[in-house]
Amino acid sequence: MKTLRAIPLWPVIRHLLLIAGAVVLLAPFIWMISTASKPPEEVFSSELHLIPHHFALWDNLKIAFAKANLWRFLLNGVIVTVSIFVLQVLIALPAAYALAKLRFLGRDTLFALVLFGILIPPQATAIPVFLLLHKLGLLDSYAALVLPFTISVFGIFLMRQFFKSVPDDLVDAARMDGISEFGIVWRVMLPAAIPAVTAFGIFSVVAHWNDYFWPLIVLNSEQLRTPPLAVAHFRNNEAGTNYGPLMAAAMVIIAPLLIAFLLAQRRFIEGITLTGIK
């Protein structure tokens, strides 16, 4: 009897709790949009209001784009993340195929190294890799941003696991049909692994679009800045004076990934939680 009466109550409590949590979690986003839409005199007022009296989003965006070359920084972000992902796939897929489907001496050792590599956090190798790039004269270039991440042991591991589930028969059929081992990687394995490659791609692009540590270390030139670095510099130059345009700039930097996420939520959540395995 008691449970019967409790039934209509629980969904209400559930929604109340979840909505309250959502408001707290979304507060920074709401505040960011609100501030980005306010003129300076409203930003610098102790009185709290969410909806601006005078809608100034376009002005703030205009100022943001005028003060910082945001298009350029967004383009840098695209160049860097796409190059990293493409190179990661080009390098990881053949290795993953060999580890999954071919027998050769030393295969197990190589795979053990891959597993070990996954454990190494990226910050741990920062100093030597920085020194290496310094020696090669590559610091402060796209190469410095891309090169260290072209090898993704995690990508090799993930693809290898996926390829394991591709039936051996398919590989044999391809050999009977006259496809070379190298051709099998691109003509047979890659198309079969599209879901895994997509998930890995999302994981990789999100991680490197949002990365701050590495660009901070290797970059000097303004024109090479990636989006997070751009926001950081914008903030260092403007903080305390110009919150409206700063929030507008933050919005612009966050927008591409958030929009992509809202369009393909399931795939994104799949991709990002891959880090869970890492």
Binding site: L25, L26, P28, F29, W31, M32, V206, W209, N210, Y212, P227, P228, L229, V231, A232, R235, L246, M247, A250, I253, I254, L257, L258, F261, Q265, F268, I269, I272
Partner: peptide, 14 residues
Amino acid sequence: FLPVMATLIAMAVV
């Protein structure tokens, strides 16, 4: 899940 996706540096500024 939104905070996970948002660029942390930008959100830190916010």
